[in-house]
Computed example of a mutant assay.
Amino acid sequence: MAVDPISSAPPVVVEAARPHTVYYNSACPVCDAGVCAMRARIDARDVEWVDVHRNPERLAALGLDLESVRERLHLVDAEGRLQVGATALMTTWSLQSRWGWLLKPLSLPGVRTLTSWAYIAFARLLYRWNRSQGRW
């Protein structure tokens, strides 16, 4: 199962209207800018974008905690599996031809673990910064 190796999130399988559903937090300006850039490059038929800041009720069906999704990107893939953090980000990148070249080196065993750790550290700092700014 392609889930963040560092994450403790239990595997969740759900049915989706589109092949992928990305859960993100628009209240974070860095996250919002990243998602806006990805949305411009990914076919709308491939991804449903769920802004948990504006639609927190969408998390109930998945059993997800709002604070967890505010901290890290979450994605339900085409097979209905929940992906969190770096794994979710790399799956989203895989839907953009522009970033395909980056996936190969980031998928190498040691590099993948370091990427996950770096993502978690950055996401945690970004989450704390957003909270200190009173964004939620």
Rank of each mutant, 00 (worst) to 15 (best):
M1K: 00
M1F: 13
A2T: 07
A2K: 11
A2R: 14
V3P: 04
V3D: 02
V3H: 10
D4P: 03
I6E: 08
S7G: 11
S8N: 14
A9H: 08
P10K: 14
P11W: 10
P11T: 07
P11N: 13
V13E: 14
R18P: 02
P19H: 05
T21W: 00
T21Y: 02
V22L: 13
Y23A: 08
Y24K: 00
N25V: 11
N25W: 14
S26C: 03
S26E: 03
A27K: 11
A27M: 06
P29H: 06
P29T: 05
P29E: 07
V30G: 03
C31I: 04
C31G: 09
D32S: 11
D32F: 10
A33I: 01
C36M: 13
C36W: 03
C36V: 10
M38E: 06
R39I: 05
R39G: 03
R39F: 00
R39V: 02
R39K: 12
R41I: 07
I42Y: 04
D43E: 10
D43Y: 04
D43H: 09
V47W: 02
E48D: 13
E48S: 10
E48P: 01
W49H: 04
W49Q: 08
W49Y: 04
W49M: 05
D51G: 08
V52Q: 01
V52L: 04
N55A: 14
P56L: 00
P56C: 00
R58G: 02
R58N: 04
L59Y: 05
A61H: 00
A61G: 12
L62G: 05
L64H: 03
E67W: 03
E67K: 09
S68P: 03
V69C: 10
V69S: 08
V69D: 09
V69I: 09
V69L: 04
E71Q: 13
R72G: 01
L73R: 00
H74A: 07
L75N: 02
L75C: 08
V76K: 04
A78K: 11
A78V: 13
A78G: 08
G80N: 07
L82A: 06
Q83H: 12
Q83P: 00
G85A: 07
G85K: 00
G85N: 01
L89E: 06
M90I: 04
M90G: 05
T91Q: 09
T91N: 02
W93H: 01
S94D: 09
S94Y: 07
L95I: 10
L95T: 07
S97V: 08
S97M: 10
W99S: 15
W99M: 14
W101F: 12
W101K: 10
W101N: 02
L102K: 09
L102R: 15
L102D: 02
L102S: 13
L103F: 06
L103R: 11
K104Y: 10
K104N: 09
P105T: 10
L106S: 09
S107P: 01
P109E: 15
G110A: 12
V111D: 10
R112E: 12
R112T: 06
T113H: 14
L114Y: 05
L114F: 12
L114T: 11
T115A: 15
S116A: 15
S116Y: 15
W117I: 14
I120W: 05
A121D: 04
A123L: 05
A123V: 11
L125A: 12
L126D: 08
Y127R: 09
R128I: 06
R128Q: 15
R128A: 15
W129D: 05
N130L: 05
R131T: 11
R131W: 00
S132L: 14
Q133W: 01
G134W: 12
W136P: 07
